[in-house]
Design a protein around this nucleic acid. Structure first.
Lengths: 208, 208
DNA sequence: CCGATTTCGTACCGTACGGTATTTATACTG
DNA sequence: CAGTATAAATACCGTACGGTACGAAATCGG
């Protein structure tokens, strides 16, 4: 019936900028940590009123969830997608390490919002919390598929059952992200990554 | 002049039990996390009044510092002391891993208060914060001395300069403690420890 | 211009925090 | 039994939090 491009407005036109608010929230959570940024502070930074934010997102839990969703789509998914690229094991691994140890830039803080949420798992609301759990499972499954693939290609030899190796990769990358966020020296973290992933790249695995 | 066993009291006798309050504080911080326990909550659990606690410890920062001091003396120091024992490398390493992956007991929560404070370094007050920094340096130095000792004995071959290897051991143990506190499966964490420390125990080190 | 409709933000609610002013309780001293 | 010294806890301070009631503002159809 209403053939217009957008549905014609009836009352006061909406001025709330959801995308911009979400950007501020993501940047704040990412840069300063989920626990250090309040809803009040996000409203201050985004220059919006608090009821405006609550009308748009519902509550703090759903705001975080929306931030995590958008972060996943724009940042995390491309990284995990590289696990499906048919490249040498070491190249893909280096991509992961580079992501985890990336230095801060004006538009992208160091570390990873998802990793920060994981380390605060027990403080998250139910929606965000379960979202984090599911993302974690998804990431581990992606690592497992990648590792089995490269093992079948004869490129690496799994030093332990694939579930254990995949969660090991996940744990090591998460730790690297945490340490980079904590301000540790990226070159030191990268040096540790070489040690941690030697278990995968040394031909004989471990003798233990 | 006052020859009595204890100095005779002049006013109302002191009933505040410092040791017991400190025990409650340590257990609370250790079990629930430094960030999750308020001064109010510690007073509630210790059944003391808030001014009483503030008279005894000064402020929250100094209370945490006192808790960390006592925890270090009673829990941490004995563990670090094992690094000076003349035992096979693998035995001492197993001791460290056992400490890091210990299950919770009624009187000792899993994880490590020091590790929990480290992950909250930037939220700590100045006193506790610098205490944590200095403890960390002390621990890394102890790891470095141990590693060099066992390398000189020909028991292991350092896969990287000793400073890097020592901080690697520190980082891995800290991560294990963090994950155990987060409720992860201890057997999984131990399996990952075997992978992480393979870089030290495999004869050839890494080929990377 | 007048309601009807929708969105806006000010001002507020209850709670909890770290920290303290002040009063009350308990002892010794003369 | 005063008077003094010390330590106890009640009751409060200012601030910040997550969340919302409610009236003001802006656009519509008539």
């Amino acid at each position: 019936m209403t053939g217009d491009a957008t549905t014609r407005a009836r009352g006061r036109p909406k001025t709330f900028n959801r995308a911009r608010t979400l950007d501020v929230a993501i940047d704040s959570y990412w840069r300063d940590g989920v626990d250090a940024v309040s809803v009040n502070e996000i409203c201050r930074r985004a220059k919006i009123s608090k009821p405006g934010l609550y009308r748009e997102f519902g509550n703090e839990d759903q705001l975080m969830d929306a931030a995590l969703t958008h972060y996943t789509e724009t940042v995390l998914a491309p990284v995990l997608a590289t696990l499906s690229d048919d490249r040498p094991f070491q190249e893909t691994l280096d991509t992961l390490i580079d992501f985890a140890t990336r230095e801060e830039t004006p538009d992208a803080p160091s570390g990873c919002l998802f990793a920060k949420m994981r380390s605060f798992r027990w403080r998250l609301g139910p929606v965000t919390g379960e979202h984090v759990d599911s993302l974690r499972e998804h990431a581990v499954a992606a690592y497992a598929a990648w590792l089995e693939w490269r093992a079948n290609e004869g490129e690496i030899e799994l030093p332990a059952p694939v579930e254990i190796t995949a969660t090991y990769v996940d744990a090591q990358l998460t730790m690297m992200l945490t340490r980079i966020s904590a301000g540790e020296d990226p070159s030191m973290v990268r040096a540790h990554a070489r040690l941690a992933f030697a278990a995968l790249t040394t031909p004989n695995g471990l003798s233990l």
